[in-house]
Design a protein around this nucleic acid. Structure first.
Lengths: 155, 155
DNA sequence: CTGCTCATGTCAACTAGATTGACTTGAGAA
DNA sequence: TTCTCAAGTCAATCTAGTTGACATGAGCAG
């Protein structure tokens, strides 16, 4: 046998709980992974990865966003952005044009192909969420959102 | 001014929602970050990072775990484990000894110093969760757990 | 027209966290 | 003795990010 659990660490490890909230910590970890697993597999098939998806996701929701604003939203350096963004431009998933008036800044948009990939990748994630919310019901989903907001906005 | 929002991307970006569940996707992203932010800052002060914490966390909950089992739980390669684990051994946060009978495998344990750091790092994360759960109430916390389980166990 | 600033782009060097593949060592078991 | 198993190590590679320095090109203020 040997490869009993091939992608080891893929399933949730069962660890002793030293504290009350340890289960919650682990659920956050495995939850993130569960949500992104299929999307990442899809992206990998397209030769893309999470940073590319983040760019596509943001540009889809802020058409004509400038490079500088994109950097702000993503929270990374321009040097870190340039590789994945240039790939997306080369592949014509994203277009850039200088704006008529503000000629200094460059405006980004998704092409039709870019929209398709963004949508499919995000769909994988939304489907995971949808299934979980369906099981939890409307009030469960609302409670999840409320807790996550408190965590996200902590401090 | 210029540095209005110094650590850009630290606050939640407000993006248009193209789909119903987009808010949920973003909450998962920012939730993970919100939970780990303070813990990561604490770890960085100790010259450690997330992979070290993961090792400490697991060893704390599985004293006398063997290297091979730890690899399984973490889901990484032994080469990836060796750097952070060796640092923890050098710093005497973790000890390893060969087991009396199964002399082939090496058993890992946290030292008192290792336990202290593990606890403090995890405390930062648990505190974030506790505050969020307090606001949500018992039923809200339970709903959050149920949703996260469904997400984590998706597939 | 000159010079300053702003948005972008690029080069280089570095770090961290991972991978795969190949090989060694030391202990137990057949 | 030989085989296997757990661990360890060496090397090369990849991804995703960092900081620092500098170039370019446009718009603006004088």
């Amino acid at each position: 046998m040997a490869k009993t659990s091939q992608a080891a660490g893929l399933h949730r490890a069962s660890l002793d709980k030293l504290h009350d909230l340890d289960a919650a910590l682990e659920l956050m970890y495995y939850g993130w992974r569960g949500m992104t697993l299929e999307a990442d597999a899809y992206l990998a098939k397209q030769g893309l990865s999470r940073p590319h998806h983040r760019i596509l996701y943001v540009v889809a929701r802020r058409p004509d966003i400038a490079i500088g604003a994109l950097l702000e939203v993503l929270g990374i350096s321009k040097q870190a952005l340039s590789r994945p963004l240039n790939l997306l431009l080369e592949r014509k998933l994203v277009t850039s044009k200088r704006s008529p008036e503000q000629h200094r800044s460059k405006l980004l948009r998704l092409t039709a192909a870019g929209q398709r990939i963004e949508q499919r990748a995000s769909d994988h994630e939304r489907n995971v969420m949808r299934q979980a919310f369906d099981r939890a019901g409307v009030s469960g989903a609302a409670a999840w959102m409320a807790v996550m907001e408190a965590i996200a906005d902590h401090n």
